[in-house]
């Protein structure tokens, strides 16, 4: 079907790690599991290489965010998909900004994680370096209303619908509507996508 995939899964929670190991085994994906970022880096130091790294954000010792920083500074190209818990979205957005590929909120469906891993490996959503593509995105962005733009900026900053609502003095439901519209216009599948696109348009790395 496709070329064999070898991924690394990092989570400090043993049952979570075990369930993912079983899942990936069933999907015929070779998954090396690590209980901490330190163990994972030790494997890297031994010369192990992975097509994709799946990591929890909140871990004792080195966090997922630290790990993204570290991989980047060591020039390792493997894309990172982060798993985040409730209330860690701002941390995840920060991780996207420093180069993580995607983040998925817990609890999630494994199929969603797998899709993200495949996207990451195929590098589907490589930044649209193409000038015309970027131009198209810009004009779509300009077609947003001022309010939609505000909602987008706050969402990209990592705020929840509730926080955005109280900041803009509108109900979380209205925020959700604006947000859905923004995603639709921009062509973002999720918040991680939105953060990446917003960064491209603003010309940041």
């Amino acid at each position: 079907m496709t070329a064999p995939i070898h991924i690394a899964v990092i989570d400090d929670d043993e049952p979570v790690l075990d369930s993912l190991r079983l899942y990936f085994a069933r999907q015929s994906i070779e998954a090396s599991c690590f209980a901490s970022a330190k163990d994972f880096l030790a494997a890297i130091a031994r010369g192990d290489r992975f097509d994709c790294v799946v990591s929890d954000v909140r871990m004792p010792g080195m966090s997922g965010l630290d790990l993204v920083h570290r991989l980047k500074s060591e020039g390792l190209a493997a894309p990172v998909v982060l798993i985040t818990g409730h209330g860690d979205v701002d941390m995840a957005v920060a991780a996207i900004k420093v180069g993580a590929f995607d983040f998925i909120e817990k609890p999630f469906d494994e199929a969603r994680l797998l899709a993200s891993i495949r996207d990451a490996i195929e590098n589907k959503r490589q930044p649209a370096n193409d000038g015309t593509e970027l131009e198209k995105l810009r004009s779509r962005l300009n077609s947003l209303s001022a309010r939609q733009r505000q909602v987008m900026d706050l969402a990209v900053a990592g705020l929840s619908n509730k926080e955005i609502g109280s900041r803009l003095k509108i109900s979380p439901k209205t925020v959700e509507n604006h947000r859905a519209w923004v995603m639709e216009r921009i062509g973002a599948r999720n918040i991680a996508d939105l953060v990446r696109i917003a960064m491209q348009i603003q010309g940041k790395p």
Binding site: D13, P15, V16, S19, L22, K106, P107, E110
Partner: peptide, 14 residues
């Protein structure tokens, strides 16, 4: 709560 929930979900779907 999320940790066991997630693992339980994955096991059950498996």
């Amino acid at each position: 709560l999320n940790q066991p929930l997630m693992a339980a979900g994955t096991y059950t779907r498996l």
